[in-house]
Amino acid sequence: MKLYIEKAIFVLMTLANYINDLLYRYDCVIVPNFGGFVTNTIGARVNTNTHTFYPPKKQLTFNAYLQHNDGLLANYIASDKNISFEEATTFIASAVVEWNKNLKTTSVEVASVGSLALNEAGQVVFEPNLTSNFLTASFGLAEVVTPSVERVKEVTVKPLSVVSEEKSKMIPLYIRRAAAAAVFVGVAYVGWNGIQNQQQQELLANQEESVQKKIQSATFVIENPLPTINLNVSKEAKNFHIIAGAFQDVHNAENKLAELESKGYEATILGKNKYGLTQVAFASYATKEEARKALEIIKEKVSEDAWLLAK
């Protein structure tokens, strides 16, 4: 009995961790025959009451009507545990059975995603973990609390014209006349400098025009031009492909492609085979020898189901 309970907890925690990992990469993770965890990105916000700034994040919700198996969760588990898609689907189904069993008596913790519980109507209620942020763009950003800022008391400032009039009444008459004379001399000096600057600009313009005419009248002739060289470069064909899987649903093939690319493979979708299944390749090679070496490494470290296709 104790071994069965420990095994059930291991299944639950493992499935929860897989869901937790996928929510960093995708906006929706569906648990077949149970429900889907959906994210919605919200921008940064501020709480004016607590003076707290919150970074952008993914807001989590749960939709019990999203129960269709889109292959995302199963493909991820199959790749991580190095098992087949059918075995991964069975693994998820057993975890869902345990979830439904535990929900009758207690709540279920889904890693750092949140908790699930049943309400009085027997419906699944999701409580997200508010401390988790699945938006990778906000990695390293935390909540910031700032002290309140007090407003400065407004100060009445007199217009400049009023201040000038008050000061002018206090300046003696002979000082105002001396200031007016100084202004007149300054204007005359500025005017003379303006005339000199204009004459210098006209002289420079004439010189520039003369140089442009000489440049335009010059003729450049190359008697012995270099011969033209044509380079024919042919792209090396890559006809040997290491197949990662074949999918009836094109969406599942695209998910597999994104998964392989995230692991650093130059993955491609080869199209449909004669059975109507969309094939996805880890990588493609120009020679059969290269492809076989890569296949041995992939079968040993990634997937035993990988195989070589010559096309």
Rank of each mutant, 00 (worst) to 15 (best):
F34V: 07
G36D: 09
G36K: 14
G36R: 13
F37Q: 06
T39P: 09
T39M: 09
N40A: 12
T41A: 11
T41P: 14
I42P: 12
I42Q: 13
I42Y: 13
G43F: 08
G43I: 15
A44W: 12
A44C: 14
A44R: 13
R45S: 13
R45N: 12
V46G: 08
N47F: 07
N47I: 07
N47Y: 11
H51C: 11
F53Y: 03
F53L: 05
F53W: 08
F53E: 00
F53I: 02
Y54I: 00
Y54N: 00
P55H: 06
K57A: 06
L60W: 02
L60E: 04
L60C: 06
T61S: 15
F62H: 08
F62K: 01
N63P: 12
A64T: 15
Y65M: 04
L66D: 01
L66F: 12
L66R: 09
Q67F: 08
Q67H: 02
D70G: 01
G71Y: 03
G71N: 12
G71R: 05
L72V: 14
L72P: 12
L73P: 09
L73D: 04
L73V: 13
A74H: 05
N75M: 05
N75A: 02
Y76K: 01
Y76D: 05
Y76A: 07
I77Q: 04
A78M: 11
S79N: 11
D80R: 15
D80N: 11
K81S: 02
K81Y: 09
K81W: 06
K81V: 04
N82D: 13
I83L: 06
I83C: 03
I83A: 00
I83K: 02
S84F: 14
F85P: 00
F85N: 04
F85W: 12
F85Q: 02
E86Q: 08
E87F: 10
T89K: 02
T89Y: 03
T90K: 08
F91Y: 05
I92E: 00
A93L: 06
A93S: 06
A93V: 04
S94L: 08
S94Y: 11
A95Y: 06
A95V: 03
V96I: 09
V96T: 15
E98V: 10
E98N: 09
